[in-house]
Design a protein around this nucleic acid. Structure first.
Lengths: 175, 175
DNA sequence: TTGCTCCTCACGTCACGTGAGGTGGC
DNA sequence: TTGCTCCTCACGTCACGTGAGGTGGC
């Protein structure tokens, strides 16, 4: 607000159209695409508050919040059907307690699979990193005649107390 | 091996066919489906060592290891194309050092996105769990006249120092 | 007025699922 | 011989991507 402040960045986040957002704004701010924004409207996950005379969609910011949550849930492995049920769970009831129980039911069903996904990702990360450590040794290997098939005889490989499963597949060693 | 041991479980894991595995064995042991096993063969990710006279596929156990790694990488968000490049990286070279560098290149490119996915999952888990804690209070709510629209005025909700974003979308509170 | 953005079809793609109709193997 | 499993098409589905051809808005 002072003259010596940073340059005006409004054009970068662009809340034009008397506070409403275009499809492009939604895509940019929600790290998505205009096609996805329109597709999510088609299946009933978000909805523009209005359209311009020329047919351009205009969204309030709460729809941006919805878009962001949908995107995050998708990246976490939820189906659009799962997400819609979760988002609509509250509106199927006219008492707070019942609505809360409904939403809780959906949440409870999803949290365990999410934990399993995290555990899988972490196990796989550990395996790939162990494989990476092994292969870094192999970049120094000069046993050309041994390479394609007889790596399992190598002392670098066999020195490992446990060849990770991923390395066994990627490097065709282990047993 | 003693008579008093546990019952024979061989029929459960079933390594029939002189040590080779059928498509059904692969599916069961790899936690996949026969359709997926055949599809992965179609795109060149796994391959049966032979077929029976009647056309039934027979796989050695290293193909089961491949199937398991492919399944894990898929669950971690890799595309089949990514996976194929990773699995074939070694065979494109005839020197160990060059092959190791190639495989390392692919691995390095995938590990950062995996870390980001883990971070997203964990952030989302934390948000959904905070939402769950809030909604557990709401299951005790008796302010029927306030419910659909005026939850933001509620002291339970406003007592939270920070309403998680997910709760803002799922419960239409916050701002 | 010139670009850049937005619009609506509509077909393509990726990774399988799901029958239909038929044969194999302990 | 009876089931259960496997086989090959082939079409369906989910979640968008990708043009084609045309219009809107600062």
């Amino acid at each position: 607000l002072s003259k010596s402040g940073p340059p005006n960045l409004q054009s970068a986040s662009r809340p034009r159209q008397n506070g409403l957002l275009t499809s492009g704004d939604m895509a940019r701010l929600g790290k998505s695409t205009v096609r996805t924004v329109r597709f999510y409207e088609e299946v009933g996950l978000i909805r523009p508050a209005q359209r311009t005379g020329g047919g351009h969609r205009l969204y309030p910011t709460d729809q941006l919040d919805r878009l962001r949550l949908v995107a995050d849930l998708r990246a976490a492995g939820f189906s659009l059907e799962d997400i819609r049920e979760l988002l609509e769970a509250k509106s199927r009831h006219n008492a707070a307690a019942a609505a809360a129980r409904e939403v809780l039911g959906h949440l409870d069903g999803h949290i365990k699979p999410m934990r399993k996904r995290v555990a899988l990702l972490q196990r796989l990360l550990a395996e790939l990193e162990a494989t990476r450590a092994l292969l870094r040794q192999c970049t120094l290997c000069h046993h050309g005649q041994r390479f394609p098939d007889r790596c399992a005889d190598c002392d670098v490989v066999s020195a490992l107390e446990q060849v990770p499963a991923a390395a066994g597949v990627l490097w065709h060693v282990g047993r």
